[in-house]
Write a protein that binds this DNA or RNA. Structure first.
Lengths: 139, 139
DNA sequence: ATCCTTGCAAATGATTTGCAAGAGT
DNA sequence: ACTCTTGCAAATCATTTGCAAGGAT
C-alpha cells in the first residue's frame, strides 16, 4: 500500500487532494491518459479542472513520480515510476500490461551503450499486438 | 537506392511529387517529425501545405510505408518501414540512432508473448540517454 | 503567514476537415 | 477521362497560460 502523501513530499511536492487522487487512480489502473485520469478524478471532485491535471502531470513527470509511456497512434499514458519493465500493448483495446524482466536484455542494452559511448538513462520496451481477450472477441 | 515511385505504387499509392519528396527526406535523415519534414520539402515545393504532410503521413503509416516512433516528451518522429530495430534516443539533441540487433532479444519477446497468449505484431525498443556528442558539449 | 496550487477563461498550438482546382494513371 | 491528391481556409481538438481565490505546511 503506497502512501501518496509521503511519496509526494519525498519528491518536494505538496500533498493536495487532487494529486493524491491522481496517483490513486493511476496506481489502481496501471496506465492512464490525461482524459482517463480526468474522468476518474472529477467524480470525487466535481470542480476539478483539466488544466490542473495537465499541470500536475507535467510536474510529477519532472519530479519523477510519474513516467510517460508514449504509444503508437494514441495519446501517451502515464504510470507510477518504478523499475523499468516491458509493456505489452494491445492495439485493439489499448490495454497495457507490465512484465518485469529486464534482466535478460540488460546485458545487450548496456553493451550497445558502451559501444556507442552512450550514457543510458532509461529503457522503454513496447511490444504491440493483440491480447488474449481481444483475440477471442474477434475470432 | 530506393525507388520511391515503385515503393508507393506497391502499396497502392500514387507517386506524387510531394510523396516522393517526403520519402526522400525521411530516407536521408532517418527520423523526422511532421515539422521537420515540412521544413525540408517546402524548400523544393514552396506552395506545399502542412495539411498535405499530415494527410500523407497518416496515409503512409496506414499503408505501412512509414512507421511512427513516439518519443517521451516530444512529438513523434517517422521513419521508413523496415525490419524492427533498437532506437538510441538522445534526450539532449533529439537524435535517433538505429541498431539492428533484435536477434538477442527476440527469444525473450516471443516467449513472453506465448506465455500471455499475445499475438505479437511489432516491437519498439527505445533507449534514452545522452549521445557521445552531447556528452562532450556538456562536459 | 507564506508560498504553492487550483479553477476558470482566454490564448495558443497542433491536427483535421471540406471543397474546388490540379495532377497522376 | 476518371479518380485521387493538393492547397487553402476554416473548424476542431489538445495543451498552456495568467490571474485571483483557496489550501497546505
Amino acid at each position: 500500500m503506497i502512501d501518496y502523501a509521503v511519496l509526494l513530499n519525498e519528491h518536494g511536492l505538496k500533498a493536495t487532494f487532487q494529486r493524491m487522487n491522481i496517483l490513486g487512480e493511476i496506481d489502481r489502473h496501471g496506465h492512464m491518459s490525461v482524459e482517463d485520469i480526468y474522468e476518474k478524478v472529477v467524480k470525487v471532485h466535481p470542480s476539478l479542472s483539466l488544466a490542473t491535471i495537465y499541470k500536475n502531470i507535467i510536474l510529477m513527470v519532472e519530479k519523477e513520480v510519474l513516467v510517460e509511456v508514449p504509444i503508437v497512434g494514441k495519446k501517451s499514458k502515464y504510470e507510477l515510476a518504478k523499475e523499468d519493465h516491458i509493456h505489452m500493448i494491445c492495439t485493439e483495446c489499448g490495454e497495457v500490461e507490465d512484465k518485469l524482466c529486464f534482466d535478460e536484455t540488460d546485458a545487450l542494452f548496456h553493451q550497445l551503450s558502451r559501444q556507442e559511448h552512450f550514457k543510458l538513462h532509461k529503457r522503454q520496451v513496447n511490444l504491440y499486438g493483440i491480447c488474449e481477450h481481444c483475440q477471442s472477441k474477434t475470432a
